[in-house]
Structure formats: C-alpha cells, structure tokens
Design a protein around this nucleic acid. Structure first.
Length: 435
DNA sequence: TCTGGGGTCCTAGGACCC
DNA sequence: TCTGGGGTCCTAGGACCC
C-alpha cells in the first residue's frame, strides 16, 4: 500500500512555477518613505518628466499610461494626484531588497525584471497558497512593497494567475493558484487574448482576424498553424497556456548581447559641443555596464535625433557604427570612437533632442581568438578601469569621471519632482521625529 | 515649450560556398 | 538540350516585454 501512495505522489509531481510581481512598483517605492501619501494617488514620470510610466492603483482611473505630463498637469492638480520624477537609484535598491526576501523563502528564483521574479515551487511539500501569502506578507513587512503572487504549471500561466490576483485583489488576497484545470479554464475563458504574456498589439489584431479573442481560444488553436502563420514564439505561448512548459527558469542571467545608453536631453541642443559632452557621458555609463558584466565590445553605434513629435520641428536622425581597433572596455577608447562617429553624423541647423550609444559585438574575455597578431587591450587600461569602478562603487557613481563629462551639464535631464535617495545617499537619509 | 530607456528573439532575404 | 540544391552567415526589420 505504501508503494502505491508513494508512486501516486511521484506521478503528481508536476512542475510548479510562481510569478511574484510588485504592485505599481515605482509608485509603491515613492510611497515607502512617504506614509502621508498612502491614500493619495501617485504617478511616476519618465526621464525628463516626459510622460507617465507608473501609476498607483488609485491613480489608474484618472491617468492613462504614457500620457505626456505637460498635458495632464491640470488634471493631476484637480484630483490631488502627486507626481514624481523617476528615481532609479531608489527603485533599484528597493528591488534588490525585495528579491533578497524572496530568495530567502524559495529555493530557485529567476529575477525577471526590476519588479518581477519567477520562482520554481516544484515538489515543495507545503501548501502553496499559504506559501504565496507568506511571501506577500514577508516582502511587505521587510520592504514596504506590496506584491501579488500567481502560481501555475508554466510561466505563461503563472503570469496570467498573477494578473488575476491583481485584478481581483480583494477576493483573492493577492494570491492565485491556477493549477486546478477547471479553475484554469474558467479564467482563460474570460481573459482577453491581449492580456497573455507575449501577445502584443499587432498579434492581437491578427489573432482576432482568426477569431481568436480569448486566452482559451489561443490555448485551443492548432499549434502548427500558429507556428506557420506567426512564429515559434506564439506556438510556445499557446502550448504554455495548455500547461505544457516551454520556457525554463533562468536563474543566472546570460551576459547581454548589446548594451545601450540612450537619453533625451533636458532641453533641445543645437551646438556640437554640449552633444559631445552628452555622448561622452552616455558612453561612460555604457562602458560601466559593459565592465560590470565583464564583457568587451568591438563595435559601437552612436546616433542622434531631433524631436519626433512636434510637427513644427525639422526632423533628422542619423547613426553610425564605429569599429574599434581591438575588443575593449576602456572608457577612454570608447569615448574617442563615439566622438569620431558623432562628428560624422552631426549636421548643423537642427535642434537635437536625444543621443544614443549602443555597444555591439560583445564578447566575454578570452572568447575571441580570431587573429594571433591582432592588438589586444593593454593591461594598464584594465587596471585603470578597475580602479575607477572601485572608487565609483564605493563613493557613488560619477565620483571620478573622464574630463569630457561635465558634472553640471547644460543637456542634463529635467527632474523637477525627484524624491530623495532615501536608501542610497547618506545626506538624503530619511529623517524621523525631531523637528 | 513639452511625448522613456532599456532589452530580447525571430524571420526573411541576400550573399556566398560547395 | 540542359543551368541544382542545400547549407551557413549576416543584416535589417518587426514584434514584444518591462
């Protein structure tokens, strides 16, 4: 008899995956150190205070995602909605804390984005809904960030379960276990296909032509047809909706294949000089990211563009790829290449809004063996970069920087509503009590 | 006046090789 | 008379995600 039960237990060890997702993450971060805003709707703006990129739940009925700030200033005032510039130092730090708490509660975690993590719960002997609630309460207690938990047998279904947990927060308590097939079908039936992870605007339109309008329709569609008509990605999505895992948990993120630093200027720039400064600064940042993942790059693309929305502005955009003499992570060499490229693409007579640096053809150290006699990066450069990174790591980004990069730039971002670096800057620590 | 900043993966098509 | 077919690599562009 024990054999039979043991066998039955083994046979039911199906894969289980959870998606833990922070609610309105950026807005929640802003509230952590502003308890007075707990009941006040909050929105967070993009760089340069351009448009809305995050909204607290109580701001959602009033403000659309992506809405330009200048258009909705009056509306925000009318409804008493508080706006913040984005404070990535704060969000990044709180994100790390959230992930640390989750990693302490479950064995295998994939940090999927700044505010989401997948967890493998396969074979855990506990009540999973209980575990979900535990994760929620623990993260909230340790960080002040509310999260939702979706549980199912595939990543795509866990995403959907999480979505349901958010949509019906009151009824579900923020945790939905979607392993039961009956429950799963019930949810898939009411879930519009555009809510499915991996199905964007274009695919939704094409799927609707084929009368696939709900998640259930997609799950039941013929996989081969989907592959032929669209791609393997859509095919996998459909299989995952059926409960067949096609996407693995990726605990260690592979090194990036491209690194980008792209930012709009605080105000339009017509002269070459300030744009040179901005390009040097962006390149410095990109090179830091490059070294952080211990890669070298062989190519760099620099591009600039004017504003793209205002019909009265003359439009211009151009980029160029520059190849380095050898694979490198030396900020100085990269800046030199980027400025060379900039000279070639810059045209007088335009009001530039944005520059972008893209590091391409990345490889890990020791990966390239193409030419025995090809030059390689001097050891002195590696040492210097290492020292720079250590100083900036210890004393804060930008403590030491190339002379070309200005610390009070004319092109800098507009951040008029920036909250303090509560957790990342000593002089901006949260003050409690004592007036 | 004013509209984000990162990334990934896939496919199609051309060049080229044998 | 007759002019293949399979494979690889690269690039551009599209679609998606957060």
């Amino acid at each position: 008899m024990w054999f039979v039960t043991a066998f039955a237990a083994m046979a039911t060890t199906e894969p289980v995956v959870a998606l833990i997702d922070c609610n309105s993450f950026y807005a929640s971060c802003e509230r952590v150190f502003r308890p007075d805003l707990q009941r006040t709707p909050v929105v967070v703006l993009s760089n340069n205070d351009g448009c809305v990129i995050a909204r607290s739940a109580d701001a959602k009925p009033f403000v659309k995602m992506g809405e330009p700030y200048f258009k909705i200033k009056g509306l925000l005032r009318k409804h008493g909605i508080v706006a913040f510039s984005s404070n990535y130092a704060l969000y990044g730090d709180l994100s790390q804390r959230v992930m640390t708490v989750i990693e302490g509660l479950v064995p295998r975690v994939e940090v999927y984005s700044i505010d989401e993590a997948f967890a493998d719960l396969t074979g855990l002997p506990t009540d999973l809904e209980f575990l979900g609630r535990r994760i929620r309460s623990q993260v909230l207690q340790c960080t002040g960030i509310p999260v939702g938990v979706g549980i199912s047998t595939t990543k795509t279904l866990a995403k959907l379960a999480n979505h349901a947990a958010k949509t019906w927060q009151r009824q579900t308590g923020g945790v939905v276990d979607l392993r039961d097939p009956v429950r799963r079908e019930k949810l898939l039936r009411v879930m519009p296909v555009e809510q499915v992870w991996g199905i964007g605007r274009r695919l939704t339109a094409s799927l609707q032509e084929m009368h696939i309008t709900t998640a259930l329709d997609l799950a039941r569609a013929d996989a081969r047809t989907l592959r032929k008509r669209f791609s393997v990605v859509v095919e996998k999505t459909a299989r995952e909706l059926r409960g067949i895992p096609c996407l693995e948990l990726e605990e260690v993120a592979p090194p990036r294949q491209a690194i980008c630093c792209s930012r709009a200027f605080g105000m339009r720039q017509t002269e070459l000089a300030p744009i040179r400064e901005a390009v040097a600064a962006y390149t410095t940042r990109a090179a830091e990211k490059l070294r952080a993942q211990r890669s070298l790059c062989r190519q760099l693309r620099v591009s600039i563009r004017t504003g793209m929305f205002n019909p009265d502005e003359a439009k211009f955009a151009k980029g160029i790829v520059v190849t380095l003499p050898y694979p490198s992570d030396d900020t100085r060499l990269l800046i030199r290449a980027a400025l060379e490229g900039l000279e070639q693409v810059f045209r007088d007579g335009y009001a530039y809004a944005k520059a972008e640096i893209l590091l391409l053809d990345l490889r890990q150290r020791g990966e390239f063996t193409d030419d025995l006699f090809a030059a390689t990066q001097p050891a002195a450069a590696e040492q210097l970069m290492g020292i720079m990174d250590r100083i900036n790591g210890r004393w804060g980004r930008g403590t030491i920087h190339p002379g070309r990069v200005s610390s009070q730039p004319a092109w800098g971002m507009k951040q008029e509503l920036l909250s303090p670096g509560y957790t990342t800057r000593l002089e901006q620590l949260w003050r409690v009590g004592c007036r």
